[in-house]
């Protein structure tokens, strides 16, 4: 076996209350694997932000999680409108979310910046009109428990 666990999730678009299901499920798995709780928190918060983004902007998407003994790699893929200027989107407070979304308490422009601060690596590839891929990596320095 190549020491990897792959999990994949469908993210239901237009369902805010469902956002967070993938991150919750990953949290449970990481706990069973004995991953350090601080690392779990970083992965879960980042995944939750990305899930919300997929729901708000892209009408859903897919998440793929690859757990290895040295790192956790997460890839979100959607077929949404894409991001025109990725650098701009990474700035704190920048958001293209609609008024309606903002009224619901989302769209503060902190999603991607938060992911950036909680993960060790983030890469965004986006094609306007086609969709966006958000990849993130969190390294496991101390793989196991005490």
């Amino acid at each position: 076996m190549d020491n990897k666990i792959i999990l994949s999730y469908e993210i239901d678009g237009g369902n805010f209350s469902g956002a967070g299901e993938a991150s919750s499920s990953v949290k449970k798995v990481l706990k069973q694997l004995g991953v350090d709780s601080d690392i779990i928190r970083r992965v879960v918060i980042s995944m939750y932000e990305a899930e919300i983004n997929a729901v708000i902007h892209a009408g859903g998407g897919r998440a793929e999680v690859e757990i290895s003994p040295d790192k956790i790699y997460v890839k979100f893929t959607d077929d949404g409108p894409g991001i025109a200027d990725v650098q701009q989107a990474m700035r704190e407070g920048f958001s293209t979310a609609s008024q309606k979304i903002r009224e619901m308490g989302f769209g503060a422009g902190m999603g991607l910046p938060n992911i950036k601060s909680y993960t060790d690596e983030i890469r965004i590839t986006s094609d306007v009109g086609k969709g966006t891929v958000v990849e993130m990596v969190v390294y496991l320095q101390e793989p196991v428990q005490k």
């Binding site: 694997l33 004995g34 496991l140």
Partner: peptide, 8 residues
């Protein structure tokens, strides 16, 4: 709840 002390 951890399955094993060794992550692998």
């Amino acid at each position: 709840m951890t399955l094993d002390g060794d992550m692998v």
